[in-house]
Design a protein around this nucleic acid. Structure first.
Lengths: 226, 226
DNA sequence: CGATTTTCTTACGGACTCTTTACGCCTTTC
DNA sequence: GAAAGGCGTAAAGAGTCCGTAAGAAAATCG
């Protein structure tokens, strides 16, 4: 499954240069030429990475960056005109992962894209996962729900981080069992049932109608999208 | 006068990413791509902070760390590849201030740089660690709790400094065992239990409900924040 | 070499976690 | 409509970890 990249830029020749180049490198590419179109496309396509120009006609690029960051955890590589240091800094502070200054070499941009995707695959344990009202700090082995700390056992913590790392994605029983208990336990779903119950009792505001850990009957479990 | 930062790394794309990023944040940046060049530049530029990759072609990063520390008191933030725990521990023991694991987020590194500089500004000379009512003087090998000196054995002192260097962060049994007793002792947690008990008895006002050295059940220990 | 300090080893009670089992409820299947 | 099996929950037993004490071994010092 090739990574999906969304290119957001209002200059036609940039888009018409980048898009085919990325396609020849094996990416699935979609484009947007305004801030509004970008937000819609992000919502619909859920790209794995966004290349975002900061100088957009309608909605500001920095604004796009922040809006996207509020709901998704997708890496963003910012394009900025030489000299607009302030915008770059703001974008980085809002969570952009990298930036490239125009004019730029294709290979440089490609290298940054590869790096950002790689980074996102194996996120450093130092930055906490934030999912809705949940903050999962893997460095401190701590979970905070709506401001108050929740004490989890190691297994519970393992399960939570595993699920929360793939929000919105359905993970089968087999997959989860293999990840938490090892390949020998794939035929013991009762482990999973009990552990999910215990975890929900601790992190769900209302365990009987879960908000975070959703059941996908006959398939597995799913961590809610944000 | 902006702080001068020296970046030492042999990977060109790391240098070419970090240098401009730091410049946009107002730092004066110089770079070196080998251990020898690093030592020369340190001598010439006298930077306020060094970002040091451990995997260098000629002179080892750990070696650079020690050499610099012999003559100067400049804070060092170490970059290390994921998994090279031993190097990290050695570098920290040789006086590095903090470390970041590759791959890392720009914001994380910037935060560590800011923290290291801030830390270095506050106490003028070779600074003891101050954590709440505890003062840990690594040069004089002394610990003072609430004004009165506490006598620690070498192992106790090692453990205390190791934990206190990362306040708030959970250090696993494995990590601590490796740092204090070496890699052979990772499967002997009883050592750690006994040593923690002895240390608590000396530095904790109430050893049965610890204030500084907190237990993270089934995971490890954590030095309390501040 | 002997005395003292430090470190290592072992053992055990208490607390907690993990696994296993059982049962009621619900949805699907026949 | 009945049987089968997934799902959630509770509870008991087994296993593990933590803190502590006490003695043995090793290192340090005079």
């Amino acid at each position: 499954m090739p990574p999906k990249v969304l290119i957001v830029d209002d200059e036609p020749n940039i888009v018409s240069t980048l898009a085919p180049l990325l396609r020849t490198r094996g990416y699935e590419v979609s484009t947007a030429m305004s801030g509004r179109a970008a937000l819609e496309t992000v919502e619909r396509e859920k790209p794995d990475l966004i290349v975002l120009d900061l100088g957009l006609p309608d909605v500001d690029g920095v604004e796009v960056c922040r809006t996207v960051r509020e709901t998704m955890n997708v890496p963003i590589v910012v394009l900025s005109a030489r000299g607009a240091e302030g915008d770059k800094v703001r974008a980085l502070d809002l969570g952009a992962d990298d930036y490239v200054t125009k004019p730029f070499g294709s290979e440089e941009l490609l290298a940054r894209i590869r790096a950002a995707l790689r980074r996102r695959e194996a996120p450093p344990a130092s930055q906490p996962l934030v999912r809705g009202g949940l903050v999962i700090d893997r460095e401190r082995f701590r979970v905070v729900r709506d401001g108050e700390e929740v004490r989890l056992t190691p297994k519970e913590f393992e399960l939570l981080t595993f699920l929360a790392r793939h929000p919105g994605r359905v993970l089968t029983h087999q997959t989860i069992l293999k990840a938490i208990w090892g390949a020998n336990a794939v035929d013991q779903p009762e482990h999973l049932r009990v552990l999910v119950g215990a975890l929900r009792k601790k992190i769900e505001p209302n365990p009987s109608s879960p908000k975070y850990i959703l059941t996908e009957p006959w398939v597995g479990y799913r961590f809610a999208d944000v």
